[in-house]
Design a binder for these strands. Structure first.
Lengths: 333, 333
DNA sequence: TTGTAAGCGTTATCAG
DNA sequence: CTGATAACGCTTACAA
């Protein structure tokens, strides 16, 4: 592999000049620039990124930590991050945190040891204090899908309350009064916010939230199935079900069909996230859109602005969810 | 950030010794080792990976190129790669090729410029010759889900013919004789192989493949919908439909339901891949399992063996698909 | 506008 | 078993 030294030799200039044309900084006359470019292509020169990093103290890599690499939601997130970063000629180092404290910390440690210029995390198990502490470190961090007050400017998040509110409103608007709810785990902030919005809408409509009609799941398909089964066991009437995410909605619908329900007439279901396959389900799922790809790109823009000095990038920290109407909600006659 | 120099100073040993304990090579007495370890933790020392790479000519990173970061199939692939690599303390640099020649080459170039120690690719648009050429370069490459004869030992692939055969056999076994087929694009080798296996099974059963009942799709959901619609327009009877992947099967089923078909009684459908949501569909999809995660790990094992000298890792290049029976196939009475 | 030279933080070769 | 010391390939003051 050719080095910068050989390029400088062939072009008849100094190392510094070669470096200048590579990085497009400093003044170089068109003539010498051409000579250098020429030598580079003749030699098939490709800069050694480790050497660049060592000398410049910049790796051009940003670390990404998400709970899982598979799964529809995180797939979108990753795709957004990679696309945006690649455009800027930076690369992504990706790792999974598995929603488990030890594993998340470990992942962050791993990324830091790789000398990332910044890290973008979607963490759930780690405490706010840990994040605050982390953000005091030398490596810039951006937190996606979580709001931590003390470092709000480093957070890119969704207004989950509005989402929960919207979902409930939709059901209410169709005449539903007895609404069951399958929530995400209590220790995840977003599930609490979603249910908060839900309750707000009920209250506005003068309907009391029935704790018996609440099942706390875990955001996975199976927990939607189990949740519906449990709710049904209580022998309390409900005509609609809101699920804190689409995967659980999908699980609940599978079970409902198995039990012979005619959806959505026997039971209306509404989800959250608008993951790719929500429109492939039967019936197609009415849900709340989570603009995760857009948010991922925004997280990258933040890094680009703060670390790589792409000024004039405008950053928004909060995003709003929107209703996506499909066929899983029926009107009460 | 503390450097190796400060560690050596605090421990009262030379740089070389510190390096030795870091890398666990060379002989170091337990006593000095302890002193060094102690100094390291006192200083919160973390080696500079760029410097290590520069000096050792090894980045401990492996590049991964796949068509898309989102999507159920590639999600699994990535998850497998990352998990296995992380265990070995290597990191993944990931990028998308979008099944487009220019973009794939560009992605590979990008990874090479990042000095990856090896690259794992799932490419579709680039030619065999390009891959052969690439494999002659200095960076080891492993090719996943594609068989290139000249470099077969660098390929990890599925026996798609058996898969196609299995799917057809399943339908035949249930008494279907009029079978429609929605295939992937003609330029993707795997779709050709799948259809080849399909035809072999038909032939064995003495049934002729009806070209009219073939629709060439593009492996995405919508193309399953369109495909079924087109097939129906031909007004030829068929009782079963095989789709070259689950996404198209999902699309076809959506459309069938929309048209009022009672699935699987009015139409049996079988897919390929066994992506995560195939069991969430209605009816749950009978399909052919693609052990993509296992294969991804095998690809990693191959680079671990060849590049990082983890000898005694056993490598298998070919994998066999298996039938997963669910509820989308009915018997013909 | 161009060149010189001092790092950047490791690894690895040789001696001892 | 341990220590000097020369690379590794590039960036970046500082000079010219």
């Amino acid at each position: 592999m050719a080095t910068i030294y050989e390029v400088s030799e062939l072009a008849g200039v100094s190392l510094a000049t070669v470096s200048r044309v590579m990085n497009n900084n400093g003044k170089v006359s068109q003539k010498t620039r051409d000579k250098v470019l020429d030598a580079m292509s003749k030699l098939g020169y490709r800069p050694n990124s480790s050497a660049q990093s060592l000398a410049s103290n910049r790796t051009n890599s940003v670390g990404v930590l998400i709970p899982e690499l598979k799964g529809p939601f995180f797939g979108q997130l990753m795709a957004g991050v990679e696309e945006q970063l690649r455009k800027a000629n930076k690369h992504v180092i990706i790792t999974a945190g598995h929603s488990e404290e030890h594993s998340e910390k470990d992942g962050i440690e791993f990324l830091l040891s790789r000398n990332c210029d910044a890290i973008i995390v979607h963490v759930e198990a780690v405490s706010d204090d840990y994040l605050i502490e982390l953000s005091r470190g030398t490596v810039p961090i951006v937190i996606i899908n979580r709001y931590v007050e003390a470092i709000a400017d480093k957070c890119i998040y969704l207004d989950n309350k509005i989402g929960g509110y919207l979902a409930a409103k939709t059901l209410l608007g169709k005449g539903h009064k007895n609404i069951a709810y399958i929530s995400g785990p209590k220790w995840k902030e977003d599930s609490n916010e979603r249910i908060f919005g839900h309750k707000a809408a009920l209250e506005e409509a003068g309907i009391e939230f029935d704790e018996d009609l609440l099942y706390v799941g875990s955001y996975v398909h199976e927990s939607g199935s189990i949740g519906l089964t449990e709710l049904l066991h209580k022998n309390k009437k409900f005509t609609a079900l809101v699920c804190s995410n689409d995967e659980m909605a999908s699980g609940a619908m599978s079970t409902a069909r198995k039990l012979g329900y005619d959806l959505p007439n026997d039971l209306s279901v509404i989800g959250f996230d608008n993951i790719i396959y929500s429109s492939y389900l039967f019936p197609t799922l009415t849900t709340i859109n989570y603009p995760v790809m857009t948010m991922a790109k925004m997280a990258v823009d933040m890094v680009l602005r703060d670390v790589y000095e792409h000024h004039k990038l405008k950053i928004s920290n909060v995003f709003s969810p929107k209703l996506v109407e499909r066929n899983s909600v029926a009107s009460i006659k």
